[in-house]
Design a protein around this nucleic acid. Structure first.
Length: 481
DNA sequence: AAAAAAC
């Protein structure tokens, strides 16, 4: 095996880009698209979250783009200039991420990759489209906008990709999707990509691909990502979910992505956590696109510890260092759970997915987990004593350094303790911790200790504060889903 | 029912 070139079949310009990016080898699904000879067919890529599906689709697209376009304009029927490939995603942030990923991968292939999404300046995009990118990534509404205004011609599209395909083929997207697909040439390749293709969507998927697709799977096809530990806590009536999330954040001490049901829940939770002294921000369609971008960047670069998000961030978003996902309310279905949880445990790293389950929803949630093929650990709610132990352990070193003036140890998990302690007198913190350590507190688990003298702080998403600087080794090695 | 997605 060792004498086999792991990049066999990868076009030379892409091999160079991948090696420059630090890839030592291909992931299973990336290897599989090449071995399947997928470059000549419609492809359906189904592989677990965080397994490098975006690069896999880049490999499929690239093989078609190495050759000059087969379509030639006839004198009597001129074909307007336009992109050769189209990638459609269900959210704006995912479109941008996919654009970025394809851009570095295909940089040496004499291609250009660009993106169009709602919430951004239409004129700027029109100008960009006049320069005719080789590959265009976008969300449905804005793509259709450009098609109808005449700014975008799809007459030269050779390949179309639906990212998060099972989501794109759902009812909510169908009308816009059909309208876009109607403008594509009959002669084209149609690709679908997702971690999940449940039975319901498979029929639609078959029709979309004209019944002809090469199925490409990675490791553990159809199984859950084994790098994620799943934990479920039963939450009784009258217990505070926000307090529980507070406790989980304290105990975990690293970045956490919290999923909530509604937009208002996102802002409510972020507000509450901020008042508790955490660096937390909401993320949902309620925000302006500019704020969405700033917030996601703040989470990506480690400026905030907690992102309180609706399902807008449930699919595809690749943030390599997320070690814990919390579901403050149960997901809608098994696939939704798989995708949410899949924001952690990426590219072979381990992650933890924590469910807060209302007692009345236990049966429902057990069915969802079984459907997703996941064996979760059902545990009692962590007691205040346990949470206290974790936070004491984490902050002890830091407090020692503060009090003695020594250099604090460089540990990322301590960085968030640093933020929590920022602007506070170490002696007050010691007093708070002692108070928290009172075993009496363990009696009422939900009465999670709140760091007493925490003044609400505004979180500046533009620059970092304090001496605190975790992050960020390098770009993702494997990319998104 | 709510989330997302065009102005």
């Amino acid at each position: 095996m060792s004498d086999v070139d792991p990049f066999t079949g990868v076009p030379e310009p892409l091999r160079a880009a991948m090696q420059a990016r630090g890839f030592a080898t291909l992931t299973a699904v990336q290897r599989a698209v090449l071995d399947a000879g997928a470059q000549e067919h419609n492809v359906r890529i189904s592989s677990q979250t965080g397994s490098g599906k975006t690069v896999a689709i880049g490999l499929v697209l690239a093989h078609g783009l190495v050759e000059p376009p087969a379509i030639t304009a006839q004198p009597d029927a001129p074909i307007p200039p336009g992109p050769r490939a189209l990638v459609i995603t269900p959210t704006r942030e995912l479109a941008v991420q996919v654009r970025d990923e394809l851009k570095w991968l295909l940089a040496e292939l004499n291609t250009t990759v660009d993106v169009v999404t709602g919430g951004t300046d239409v004129r700027g995009e029109q100008k960009m489209l006049r320069r005719v990118p080789t590959i265009l990534v976008g969300t449905p509404g804005r793509l259709l906008d450009h098609i109808r205004s005449g700014a975008l011609s799809c007459a030269r599209i050779e390949q179309v990709v639906l990212d998060e395909a099972d989501r794109m083929l759902e009812m909510g997207f169908r009308d816009e999707l059909d309208a876009i697909i109607d403008t594509l040439p009959e002669q084209r390749r149609s690709h679908l990509v997702s971690a999940t293709f449940n039975g319901v969507v498979r029929g639609v998927a078959d029709r979309f691909q004209g019944g002809e697709a090469t199925l490409v799977t990675g490791d553990n096809a159809g199984e859950a990502n084994a790098d994620i530990d799943h934990v479920a806590y039963l939450v009784g009536r009258g217990q505070s979910y926000a307090a529980l999330v507070n406790a989980l954040l304290l105990a975990h001490g690293q970045q956490v992505l919290v999923f909530v049901e509604r937009r208002t829940d996102a802002s409510d939770l972020a507000e509450r956590l901020s008042a508790d002294g955490f660096a937390a921000l909401p993320f949902s369609g309620d925000l302006s696109q500019a704020q969405r971008t700033r917030t996601l960047n703040a989470f990506r670069n480690g400026t905030i510890q907690a992102l309180c998000s609706t399902d807008v961030a449930a699919r595809g978003i690749d943030i390599p260092d997320i070690t814990m996902v919390v579901h403050m309310s149960p997901p809608n279905d098994a696939d939704s759970y798989t995708h949410r949880a899949g924001r952690t445990g990426r590219a072979g790293k381990r992650g933890r997915s924590v469910l807060l389950v209302p007692t009345r929803s236990e049966g429902y949630m057990r069915r969802i987990l079984a459907q997703a093929g996941i064996d979760a650990q059902w545990q009692p709610i962590p007691t205040a004593a346990k949470v206290t132990k974790a936070i004491v352990k984490r902050t002890r070193k830091l407090l020692h350094a503060r009090l003695t003036g020594e250099q604090p140890p460089q540990e990322k998990s301590l960085a968030y303790a640093e933020l929590l302690l920022a602007d506070r007198d170490p002696k007050t913190v010691v007093a708070t911790l002692l108070e928290m350590a009172e075993p009496d507190l363990a009696r009422s688990p939900m009465d999670v200790p709140e760091p007493e003298p925490a003044p609400p702080r505004r979180i500046d998403t533009r620059r970092r504060r304090g001496p605190w600087r975790p992050k960020r080794g390098g770009p993702s090695k494997r990319g998104g889903d």
